[in-house]
Design a protein around this nucleic acid. Structure first.
Lengths: 217, 217
DNA sequence: TGCCAAATCACCGTTTAACGGGATTTCCAT
DNA sequence: ATGGAAATCCCGTTAAACGGTGATTTGGCA
C-alpha cells in the first residue's frame, strides 16, 4: 500500500489482448516490470529469466493441453506466485487446480479489489478465492457436487458417451466387456439423474467434464 | 488522430470488469466521457442521456435474452455507433448481427489496432470486422457453412434433439407425427454427416445453434 | 492384513429408438 | 402455373438401451 513500486516482475499470460492491457494498466503503479505472453512457449521463455515473482494467467493458454501443463509449471517454479484469472470456472476445475497447488483464483467479472487480493495472497504464498469463485465452490445443488460422486472410470466413460460413442464402441476402445460398459452406463445415469446421452452431454459440459468447446472454430 | 479529445461520449457495456477498464484506459486519450454498465437496465439508463455516440458491448450482457434486445437498441438509436467486442463468435451470430444492422465486430483477442478500426468505422456508420472475425466468416469447412443448409424446421428440431428430447417427445411438442420428426432427423444427420445425438449436440454448440451454455452455474 | 469400494463381467426379458425405404401434400419462387 | 424443395406421414426390420440381479477381481487405505 506504499507509493513506491515493489521490485517485482510480473508475467501476464492471457490470450486476450484486452486482459493483458487492463492488468498492465492496473498494476503499473505497483510493480516494476511486466512481460506479456499469449502462448505456452512464450511463457517458458520468460521463466528462464531470473526474478519473475508472479504469473497471472488464464488456465487455458491456447496451446495448453491440460491441467498437467500447469502442474509442471507449479512444480518447476514453486517460488513464483500464480494467479488464475479466467472467464468462468467450474467446481471440478477449482478442485483440480487445488490438487496441483494453485489456490488463487479470480474471475474476469470480479472487480479490482478481488484481483488485488488474489495477487497479494499469491505473493505471500497464501490462498485466495474471489467471492464469485467461492459461490461456485460452495453451491450444493446442480451438476457441481454431483459430478464428484462419479468414479474415475465412470468419468472416463461419460467423456466417451459424450463424444458420441456407443456402448459397444466404448467396450472395444477400452478393451473391456460390453457388459461392464453397460453397468457403468447405468450407474452413471442413475447417479446423475439423467436419462439420455444428450442430457448427459449437457450435464458434462456444465459440470466442466468436457473441454475443447471452442466457439470460433 | 489529433491530440485533442473528441467530444464523444462512450458507454462501455460488458459484464467483465477487466474489459471495461481496459477500454477506458485505451480510449481516455481520445474521447470525452465514459459510462460503465454491466446490465441491460444500466444501459437503458444512460441511453436516456443525450449525446451518447458509441456503445461498446459484448453481444451477451448477462440479462440480454437474445439478439432481439440488440435489435431494439439498434432501431431505437440508429444514430449511435455499436461495436460488438466479444470472447468468441460464430458464423451464424455474425449473420444474425448483420441482419439487425450491427456490422462492427472485434474479438477480445484482437489487438488495439483492430479495436480502434472498429470504433472509427462505427462512428462513421461504416462496417468493420477484424481479421479473425473475417476468418470465421469466410472459413468454408466445418460446421459453419453446413449449418446454413439446414431448413428452418430442421434447425428447430436440431435444437430440440440437442436439449435432450426424444423423437417422440418432439412430435408431441410440435403437434406433428413421430414419422415426420424421424424423417427430419434422418435428413439432418445425413446433411451434417453425424451419426448420433451427442455428436449432433457438439455440432450444434460449435455452430452456434445452442446458446445458454453457462459455465459458472 | 483385512476390509470396502470400485471395477470388472455376465445373463435375461422387456422396451424403446433408430434405420432404410417409400410415399404424399404443402409451399414458394421462377 | 408448375417444378422442385420442404414438410408431412407410414411400415417393417434391426439394433441398442433399460432394469434387475448377481458374482468375481482389483486396489487402496486403515
Amino acid at each position: 500500500m506504499t507509493n513506491t513500486k515493489r521490485n517485482i516482475s510480473v508475467v501476464l499470460a492471457d490470450t486476450q489482448f484486452l486482459t493483458n492491457e487492463a492488468l498492465r494498466a492496473m498494476l503499473t503503479p505497483l510493480y516494476k516490470a511486466f512481460y506479456t505472453v499469449s502462448t505456452k512457449a512464450g511463457l517458458q521463455q520468460y521463466l528462464q529469466k531470473e526474478g519473475i515473482s508472479l504469473i497471472i494467467t488464464d488456465y487455458i493458454l491456447f496451446d495448453f493441453d491440460s491441467i498437467s501443463e500447469l502442474e509442471d509449471l507449479r512444480k518447476n517454479h514453486p517460488e513464483i506466485g500464480i494467479v488464475v484469472l479466467t472467464n468462468s470456472i467450474t467446481h471440478i476445475k477449482i478442485k483440480e487446480l487445488n490438487d496441483i497447488g494453485i489456490r488463487n483464483i479470480v474471475l474476469k467479472t470480479d472487480d479490482s479489489e478481488e484481483i488485488f487480493h488474489a495477487i497479494d495472497a499469491a505473493l505471500k504464498g497464501k490462498k485466495y478465492y474471489s467471492g464469485d469463485v467461492l459461490d461456485i465452490l460452495l453451491k450444493k445443488d446442480g451438476p457441481l457436487e454431483d459430478a464428484t460422486i462419479l468414479t474415475t472410470s465412470e468419468i472416463d466413460i461419460v467423456r466417451m458417451i459424450s463424444s458420441g460413442l456407443s456402448t459397444k464402441e466404448i467396450a472395444v476402445k477400452k478393451h473391456i466387456s460390453f457388459h461392464t460398459v453397460m453397468t457403468h452406463r447405468k450407474n452413471i445415469f442413475r447417479k446423475l439423474g439423467v436419462s439420455s446421452s444428450p442430457e448427459l452431454l449437457m450435464y458434462a459440459i456444465k459440470a466442466g467434464l468436457i473441454d475443447n468447446i471452442e466457439y470460433h472454430i
